[in-house]
């Protein structure tokens, strides 16, 4: 890490942990906490999609894993009475396991074929949630408890959220922490040996496999990590809204996850974060325009694509990227 990068990370951390809550407290716009919490969680799912882009696959199925993760967490909390903090990693692991099973056959597909299959996967998840008994059909699962206390050797590490004066802030801190950890992990993966191998897959799979890269293993691994992120994001969403329905994550959400990555730029680890922030916040800010909201939003999207077809971050980092590659 260069000094400027270190400085950037510190500035970012200070901004999300201190500056944003302070600004919200000053302005009194408490509703921004919910928006930003959603952004943080959605950007985790987008980070997963970004990783599948990194191995050269267009993934429009992240909504499926977000939904599955959400249901796993919700069912474990309501039926088994587990603490949210235990169900969170379990939801991620369940999704990762599931994605290995699904990924083994479908990762053989490429290009638009993979894109279309994953799109169908989102529909499969929604229809399964409607048809199964354990997911309670269209009624969904509601009145999910708030996260409980986590204590280690008698010391409270995470307090019970229902005892807090300001659970909104607590949820914000939770989501942002998850986001920071996820993106740190993603950054580490991309800059490791695994990341280099993934790049080789993105460029030419046959060539990579001919020089001894285990492509089948790698793409399943990348897909599993991606789905893990999806599951975590889904579980996080369940706990902030305290409910889940089959329509909580659908095709539109899957497409949005993909758009977040595109908009931020596919060559940059932090692209999905920026893309999610802009898309979600932009959508929220346009709420005041009423019925023209969708029109303006989609026009801006098309415009962004026309002007910057390679993502927003391609502008500011265009010089550095030329040297780095």
């Amino acid at each position: 890490m260069k000094l400027t990068e270190k400085l950037g990370v510190v500035v970012f951390l200070v901004a999300v942990y201190v500056l944003v809550p302070a600004l919200i407290a000053l302005s009194g716009r408490w509703d921004f906490f919910y928006t930003l919490t959603s952004v943080a969680l959605l950007s985790i799912a987008s980070a997963g999609v970004w990783l599948t882009f990194y191995i050269g696959r267009i993934n429009i199925g992240q909504g499926a894993y977000a939904l599955v993760g959400g249901y796993v967490s919700a069912i474990l909390m309501t039926k088994a009475g587990l603490n949210f903090w235990i169900t969170l990693p379990l939801a991620g692991l369940f999704c990762a396991g599931l994605s290995v099973l699904i990924g083994l056959p479908i990762l053989r597909l490429r290009g638009v074929y993979f894109a279309m299959v994953t799109l169908v996967l989102t529909e499969v998840a929604r229809l399964s949630a409607l048809a199964l008994h354990i997911t309670n059909g269209a009624k969904g699962i509601t009145s999910i408890p708030l996260p409980g206390k986590v204590a280690l050797f008698g010391i409270t590490i995470i307090p019970d959220f229902s005892t807090l004066a300001n659970p909104k802030l607590a949820f914000y801190i939770m989501a942002v922490t998850l986001m920071v950890v996820s993106f740190a992990a993603l950054w580490r993966i991309v800059n490791s040996r695994l990341g280099h191998l993934c790049r080789s897959l993105q460029q030419n799979e046959e060539l990579a496999s001919s020089i001894g890269v285990n492509t089948a293993y790698l793409r399943v691994l990348a897909y599993a990590i991606s789905s893990f992120f999806g599951g975590i994001a889904g579980a996080g969403f369940v706990i902030i809204s305290q409910s889940i329905y089959p329509s909580s994550f659908q095709v539109t959400d899957s497409v949005n996850f993909m758009l977040n990555c595109f908009l931020g730029g596919l060559s940059f680890v932090f692209g999905p974060m920026l893309g999610t922030l802009l898309l979600y916040f932009g959508w929220d800010l346009l709420f005041s325009t009423g019925k023209y909201q969708m029109l303006i939003y989609s026009s801006l999207l098309i415009l962004a694509m026309l002007v910057l077809p390679n993502g927003l971050l391609s502008v500011s980092f265009s010089r550095r990227k030329g040297v780095g590659k």
Partner: peptide
């Protein structure tokens, strides 16, 4: 967009944007 983008997947974003746009226009 096809002429200028580095990855051909960019057109998918454009197509999705057009889908949203047509939805909005139809609604209005």
């Amino acid at each position: 967009v096809i002429a200028r983008s580095k990855r051909e997947e960019s057109t998918m974003l454009l197509a999705a944007g057009v889908a949203f746009f047509l939805d909005a226009v139809t609604l209005l």
